[in-house]
Simulated assay, not measured.
Amino acid sequence: MDSRYPIGTFEHTGEITAAQREQWIQDIAELPERAREAVKGLSEEQLSLPYREGGWMLKQVIHHLADSHMNSMIRFKLALTEDTPTIRPYDEERWAELNDSRDLDIEFSLQILDALHRRWVALLQTLSDEDYAKQFYHPGSQETTRLDYNLGVYSWHGRHHVAHITSLRKRLGI
């Protein structure tokens, strides 16, 4: 197993069905509890362990989830209210090195995930097929992304980072 991608990379080709979207929405709905469960009982010392050699500390992973998913919801809202907007990229590596990501209690980001995901899921459940076909443009990758595809990316993203934590716990027996 590649410790960078414990559940593999995100891949989806072909049509995205309503059933697939429902599964991805369910994954997004479950992420806050899965993240909370993944770090349950870990000490501050354990939260400061990197999930792999050269990787982020576990606490940085939790803070990154909050940062990334806030950005994603904003991208959804921009695409829903503008015609193929150009989104604002951010440097996730540099954000992860800021003091709040390195030092702040993870409970703050877990609370953000709880509230953000409740609101995000409420929005996602109201979108039509036409809404999911809306897109945004990412100037960094120079790609235009449909919202239904991005939903899948963030379903995977949450599971991917929870697996970073749970796979380290399994390897260390903690």
Rank of each mutant, 00 (worst) to 15 (best):
S68M: 14
Q26I: 00
F136K: 05
R169I: 06
R169P: 01
E97Y: 02
L47T: 00
G158Y: 04
E37F: 02
A19C: 01
I165Q: 04
W120K: 03
T145M: 11
A66K: 05
M70I: 14
T144G: 00
H161D: 05
H117G: 06
G152D: 11
W24T: 09
D27R: 13
K134I: 02
E33H: 10
R119P: 00
W56T: 07
T126S: 13
I106Y: 07
R146S: 14
F76M: 12
L49S: 01
Y5R: 10
I74F: 13
R75A: 07
H64T: 04
H160N: 09
I106A: 06
E53C: 01
R159I: 04
L47F: 01
L168K: 00
G140V: 09
L124M: 09
R146V: 02
R88M: 12
H64R: 02
I165L: 02
E37M: 03
E15C: 00
Y149H: 13
D105T: 04
L113R: 09
G140Q: 14
E37P: 00
Y5I: 00
V162A: 10
G41K: 08
Y5L: 03
K40R: 14
S3M: 05
T9K: 15
R118I: 01
H117V: 05
E45A: 15
E45G: 03
R171Q: 13
Y90D: 11
Y51V: 12
S167R: 13
R88C: 02
W120H: 07
K40F: 08
P50I: 03
R21M: 11
F108Y: 14
L127T: 11
A19Y: 01
D67A: 03
H157A: 07
L42V: 06
R169H: 01
R159H: 12
L124G: 04
T144W: 02
H157T: 08
P139I: 06
L113Q: 09
T13K: 14
T126G: 08
M57L: 09
R118L: 07
N71Y: 04
D91M: 01
I174W: 09
L127S: 08
E44W: 00
Q60R: 07
T17W: 05
W120F: 15
V162F: 05
L151P: 06
S3V: 06
Y137V: 00
H164C: 07
D27Q: 15
M1T: 10
W156D: 09
L42M: 14
R171L: 08
T166D: 09
P139Y: 05
D103P: 00
T9A: 10
F108G: 12
M70W: 08
A35F: 10
G54C: 11
A35T: 14
M70K: 15
